[in-house]
Amino acid sequence: VSPKGARAASAGMFITLAAHVAAMAPGTNIGAAHPVSVGIAKMDKVMGDKVVNDMAAYARSLALERGRNADWAERAVRQSVSIHAAEAHRLKVVDLLAEDLPELLQKVHNLPVKLNKQTVILKTQGVPVHIMEEGLRTRILKHIADPNIAFILMLIGLAGLYFELAHPGVVLPGVVGALSLLLAFYAFQTLPVNFVGLLLIILAFVFFILEIYVTSYGLLTLGGVISLLMGSLMLYRTGDPGMAVAWSVLIPAVLIITLFFVGIGVLILHSQMRRSMSGVSGLIGERGEAYTDLNPEGKVFVHGEYWQAVSEEPVAKGEQVEVLKVEGLKIFVRKAS
C-alpha cells in the first residue's frame, strides 16, 4: 500500500489480506471494509446483514490463510475500523513496512512464501522491475466513475436535454446531453447513489423550466436552488469514505446552473415584454406618410406597404401619420406629433 497518503479500504483491504506478502508505506492506512450498496437501489436490513456476514467470514478466512490477524479483519468489515501502517504491522495485519519499492524488494529478498502446497524463497535482489501501467480504457472509465465527474456529467446532460427540448432541431445540445446522461448513469452503477438525492436534482431542473413559463415571482427559482443544493448533498450515501461531491465542485456547479436558468428566464421575459416588430400588432405605433388626403378616409404608406386608412381629423397628402389600431385590412391613424 503506497505511496504516503494512500489507503487500502473496502476492496483494497481484501486484496491486501489475500496477498502472499502484504506491505505498507508509512503514512498509509487500511480498513473501512463495511459493504455499501452501489447503484440507485438500497439493500434492506435482511440483505445487508447477509452481505456483512458473508464478507466478514471471507475476510476472516483470507487472514487465517495468510497467517494474519483474523479478528481485526472481521472488525474491519463489521465496524469499518481503520488503522495506520505502524499499527497494522504491530497487529500483524500486514507483514512489513517499507518506505519505497527498492526497500520493499530488499526486505522481501530470501523471504519464504507459501504457494499452494509448497514453500518458495523469493529472490528479489537486483531483479529488473516492470511497471504495469493502466490502459487508456481503464483510465477513462476510472475518471468517469469519480463521484464529482459523475455529478458534473449529470448536470450537463440535464441542461443539454433542456436546450434540445426548448429549441428543437439544434441537435448539438441534445447529443451532448444524451451522451453525458448515459455516462453519468454508467458511473452511478458503480457508486452508492441515493435515489432521493437524484430525484431532488431532477426536480430542481423541473422547477427551473417551469419558472420560464409560469409567473411565480422567483419562488420556483428559489425552490430549484434549494432542491439542487440538497440533492447534490444527498446524491451519494456516505457509508464509504470519499463518496461525496466535493464542496469545490458542488458550490460552483450549483451557482452556474442557477445563473444559467435565471439568465434564460430574464432573456425570455425581455422578449415577451418587447413590442412586436412584425405582423398586425407590429404596425401599432408605426409612422408613415399620407399617400392621399384623408377626410376621413384615404391611403397611407406605412411599413413599406400601402394601407386603406381612416383619420378622425383631416390629414393632407404628404403629412406624417401614426398608426393607432388595425381592424382587418383598414388602419386608424392620426397626425404624427
Rank of each mutant, 00 (worst) to 15 (best):
Y213Q: 01
L283V: 15
I40K: 14
L155P: 01
S271L: 06
A187D: 09
S337A: 13
I226Y: 13
G135P: 12
H270Y: 15
I121Y: 12
N194M: 04
A8Y: 02
L199S: 04
V321D: 00
E65T: 08
L165P: 00
K299G: 00
D49H: 00
R66K: 15
A73H: 06
I209Y: 04
N116C: 03
G288C: 07
M273I: 06
A23H: 08
E74D: 05
R7Y: 02
K142G: 11
V310Q: 14
K335V: 10
S276C: 11
G318L: 14
L191W: 04
I209E: 11
N148H: 07
V206N: 10
L219R: 06
M47I: 09
A98Q: 07
A336N: 09
S248H: 14
Q308E: 14
G285D: 13
V21Q: 06
D71Q: 03
R60P: 12
H109L: 04
P173I: 01
G67P: 04
A59F: 07
Y236A: 02
K325V: 08
E297I: 06
L255T: 12
A184H: 00
H143A: 15
G318H: 10
F195M: 09
A23T: 08
A204Y: 05
S227Q: 08
L198M: 08
E289S: 06
K123T: 06
I30P: 00
V310F: 14
S232G: 15
G218K: 05
I331Q: 11
G135N: 13
S227E: 07
L183W: 10
H130S: 12
E319Q: 04
L91H: 07
A145K: 07
M43V: 09
G224D: 02
N295K: 07
E297W: 01
I256Q: 05
L199D: 02
P35V: 10
H130Y: 02
T221C: 07
F207Y: 09
R78S: 02
V323E: 05
V300R: 03
G160D: 01
R7L: 10
P241Q: 00
M13I: 05
E322N: 08
A63C: 00
P26M: 14
A8V: 03
